[in-house]
Design a protein around this nucleic acid. Structure first.
Lengths: 158, 158
DNA sequence: GATGATTATTTCAAGCTTGAAATTTCAGGA
DNA sequence: TCCTGAAATTTCAAGCTTGAAATAATCATC
């Protein structure tokens, strides 16, 4: 890690503080994500995006549309297509075209998908407990509350 | 019901709370990242990884090794190779092999790269100020401190 | 100086990601 | 019915990402 000379023009101290917050936020989530990715690969031979899709579907036993998935997971439509394709070809997920609207397809976990996800979710929760173990319960609640409010502050403004 | 299990439910509740924190952390950083990506593309026709590499190099006028870059940015070696390749072919960055150790190459911003980065950095800082605008200065400091400590708690333990 | 281990980097396949264009289907009006 | 526009999804090119294997150079030890 390199220390910064960077005698930049005097910008607001506020801005610098927010920048620092953003960088820490990003580094924290990247570090945790990397660790989760590695463990998912090691223990379940799968990826984080696949886990995310399965987690979303597990919460919706009645199924989700492709567009529901992409909105919920904050990724593009085309992205979801590829991930679901691979999950389908592994027998973990089904696409069923509906009679009502033939443009849409309902995506659901298969029995095998449900069983696998339950195992992964248990491991995942334990990992998070371990990785965030240094954060006290009190701090956890406070952090979670701050993050909740700060997201809603600007989202969807444009 | 004479003796209810005390520890198990408590641990599980803790875990749930940490899981919630992780999900919020992830959603916050993904949402901001998506917004930054879009604006970098729109205003500078570039990408977030390219911006990240240039930011790292800007802080190190003497240059950085490829391995320094990948360590600092928390990404793989092979990844950096591709991004630097494209920056070089755009004239924003140079690779110079050193006399001392011919395995390594020093990566530096060109004059053009420095000028471009300055413009991008100003816009970037303003964007962060806007996107995190809802967080008070007091909260910003507290959040940043929590994130700092929580990261160091488990990192590099294995 | 030869040899084997180590280090820095590149290459590669597979998968992820976006944004834009194309496709298919639906809905509403002339 | 036939249009036209909107909506859901897929396709595609370009770039990002990892992890593993390959290359090349250096280092340590004899």
């Amino acid at each position: 890690m390199v220390s910064a000379p960077l005698s930049a023009p005097e910008i607001s101290k506020d801005g610098k503080e927010r920048l620092r917050l953003w960088i820490r936020l990003l580094r924290a989530s990247r570090t945790i994500e990397a660790e989760l990715r590695e463990r998912l690969k090691r223990d379940f031979d799968t990826t984080l995006p696949r886990f995310d899709v399965m987690a979303a579907l597990y919460r919706a036993p009645e199924g989700m549309l492709m567009s529901d998935l992409s909105r919920f997971l904050l990724v593009s439509n085309g992205n979801i297509t590829g991930i679901v394709d691979r999950l389908v070809s592994d027998g973990l997920v089904t696409r069923s075209r509906r009679n009502g609207d033939r443009r849409t397809s309902m995506v659901r976990l298969t029995e095998e998908g449900i069983a696998l996800f339950r195992r992964m979710a248990a491991a995942h929760e334990a990992w998070i407990g371990e990785l965030l173990g240094g954060v006290s319960e009190e701090e956890t609640r406070r952090l979670a509350n701050m993050l909740k409010s700060f997201r809603s502050n600007w989202e969807g403004k444009e």
